[in-house]
């Protein structure tokens, strides 16, 4: 264990290298001109290939990176703030709020990507706001317990709302669109979507990254955090708003992409320890890696697009089971 700082450095270098290699490969992986691989020199010979990479693959690739990093960072922050390793970024009514907003938009407001994104973001934030204000009105339990309870209730509320909207939707046109959105995916991403994401996601991730030492403090009891100079409620709320804004934005663009925010923080902690000073950047790198890998599979594996959310859930659940069985072994030892 003494060698930990050294191995940690090598792990970081490995993660960065792996990410760079995957990014480079992802540009050439796809189904044009034939399945799985595009020879790099085609970029200069075939103008269609050039345009494909520039207008479709590149923004999609960057969005996948941003989505993965955001969900993993949000998951890490939420798990630490709520002192609960089973929490995931969408649980405070955010995912279901976004889903409701998107479905509402598809049905009645407008089906242009920007309209859906803005509506989904607004309803995701509404989900958080509802959870927050109802939690403030509860008269029992600690702050954490109250937020968890109201998060569950608000999620159920919006989820029921999504059910109603699906029931009302035209089964031939609107329903498939809602269903596809709910399954998550980046097939429609363009530079516009990326431009929509950046101003919401980058400031949030910067705040979280800068506060990563404070995050350790905020994962302790209120009285300890307070006695070590933190303002627990205020600082937790600030971090929460930051990660929820970012999560709402990426959910609005990519739909509900599950398990990234739950499983990646676990893997990062397993590799780098609990200290968020290292775990947070590690989770962001791993999240980006995981999301990009899953998205590469989503657009390449079959002739038709596989929804990204299905792949991340499949991979995530498998890794989760593997981690759980290993944890059991370790505590029994």
């Amino acid at each position: 264990m003494n060698a930990r700082p050294l191995t940690r450095r090598w792990l970081f270098i490995f993660l960065v290298l792996a990410l760079l290699i995957l990014i480079a490969l992802s540009i050439f992986v796809g189904r044009y001109p034939k399945p799985y691989w595009m020879p790099p020199d085609l970029l200069w010979q075939d103008s269609l290939a050039g345009r494909l990479v520039l207008t479709l693959r590149l923004p999609r690739l960057l969005t996948a990176l941003l989505l993965g990093a955001t969900l993993a960072a949000s998951g890490t922050v939420m798990q630490m703030i709520f002192r609960n390793p089973l929490v995931e970024p969408g649980f405070l009514g955010v995912s279901q709020g976004a889903a409701f907003g998107a479905a509402l938009s598809i049905l009645w407001i407008g089906t242009s990507p920007l309209t859906i994104e803005v509506t989904a973001t607004l309803f995701a934030m509404l989900g958080l706001a509802l959870s927050y204000f109802i939690a403030r009105r509860l008269r029992f339990g600690g702050w954490v317990l109250r937020l968890v309870l109201t998060g569950i209730a608000v999620s159920a509320l919006f989820s029921a709302g999504v059910g109603v909207l699906k029931y009302l939707a035209d089964p031939l046109t609107e329903l498939p669109e809602i269903t596809f959105w709910l399954l998550g995916g980046l097939w429609s991403v363009t530079w516009h979507d990326l431009l929509y994401l950046l101003p919401l996601v980058l400031p949030a991730l910067t705040v979280v990254y800068l506060m990563r030492w404070r995050l350790n403090l905020l994962s302790l009891n209120d009285e300890t955090a307070f006695s070590l100079g933190a303002a627990p409620t205020r600082e937790r709320t600030l971090l929460l708003v930051a990660v929820v804004t970012a999560t709402a934005a990426v959910t609005a663009v990519g739909g509900i992409v599950g398990w990234v925010g739950l499983i990646v923080p676990h893997i990062a902690r397993r590799l780098f320890g609990a200290n968020a000073q290292y775990t947070l950047p590690a989770a962001m790198l791993s999240g980006a890696l995981f999301a990009l890998f899953a998205d590469d599979l989503a657009r390449t594996l079959l002739a038709g697009e596989i929804p990204l959310g299905i792949l991340t859930s499949l991979l995530g659940a498998l890794i989760f089971v593997w981690l759980m069985t290993r944890t059991q072994l370790r505590t029994r030892k």
Binding site: N84, S219, L228, G229, A274
Partner: peptide, 20 residues
């Protein structure tokens, strides 16, 4: 009483005392 579900090392935990 103070508990944490996270695997902080003892050194990291004590380091938190330096935050002020």
């Amino acid at each position: 009483i103070e508990t944490t579900p996270f695997d902080f090392s003892v050194l990291e935990y004590i380091l938190l005392g330096r935050t002020p």
